[in-house]
């Protein structure tokens, strides 16, 4: 088994925050987009999970709001090298959304309104590590930051936290997403500085 050490790269911060290797802290919230911002009305919004056998589960906005939510406060790390400490969100844990989904899949391909996709192992969406987030800093999530709802997977580089999330395809075999097909890492652990394929 590989032993992964954070080594001496991380810089200790106030209040227990730590900067992964190669990152700098920002107090702003940069907006990075690979395409136009989709404007999705809440009446039309839907989140869909499709299993590897083709079974489809979906939630409309009212159904999402009726689910128990959590308010994680997390540090986020963008592959373009900025990190932002102590970001406050509200959203539904993927543990809740996937609780009744029957699947033996190992991989997930996350889809967004627009044409964005990103891939990650299914286990990284479970056990309290990921949310469908719809509020930021006690306010509705602005469209430029992924509203009405975005994925939040803060332990991986932030391109995995797909803005304008529309669903998740569960897969037996890994399928690469928008940035992963042009050189970005399939996993993207900021603490191991997995920015590009081969890192």
């Amino acid at each position: 088994m590989a032993v992964i050490s954070r080594g001496f790269h991380g810089r200790a911060r106030d209040k227990g925050h730590e900067l992964p290797p190669g990152q700098y802290e920002t107090t702003g919230f940069p907006v990075l987009s690979a395409g136009p911002t989709p404007v999705v009305s809440l009446d039309d919004w839907e989140f869909t999970v499709r299993t590897e056998t083709g079974v489809r589960y979906s939630w409309n906005w009212q159904e999402l709001m009726a689910l128990p939510s959590e308010t994680p406060t997390v540090d986020i790390h963008c592959v373009t090298k900025w990190s932002k400490f102590g970001t406050r969100w509200q959203g539904v844990s993927l543990d809740v959304l996937l609780a009744d989904v029957e699947s033996g899949a190992e991989y997930a391909l996350v889809r967004s309104y627009g044409d964005y996709t990103t891939n990650l192992p299914l286990e990284d969406l479970l056990d309290g590590k990921a949310w469908v987030a719809y509020r930021f800093d006690d306010e509705e999530l602005p469209a430029e930051h992924g509203g009405p709802a975005r994925l939040l997977v803060p332990h991986l580089y932030f391109w995995k936290s797909a803005k304008w999330v529309s669903g998740i395809q569960l897969l037996d075999e890994e399928e690469q997403g928008f940035w992963e097909t042009v050189g970005y890492h399939n996993y993207g652990d900021p603490w191991r500085e997995q920015r590009y394929q081969g890192d």
């Binding site: 990075l32 987009s33 690979a34 395409g35 373009t80 044409d115 391109w159 050189g183 970005y184």
Partner: peptide, 17 residues
């Protein structure tokens, strides 16, 4: 679309990549 993880050019007609 610049400044993100890479450079993206989209069609001015249909916005496809």
């Amino acid at each position: 679309y610049l400044g993100g993880p890479g450079t993206v050019l989209r069609c001015p007609g249909c916005e496809d990549v």
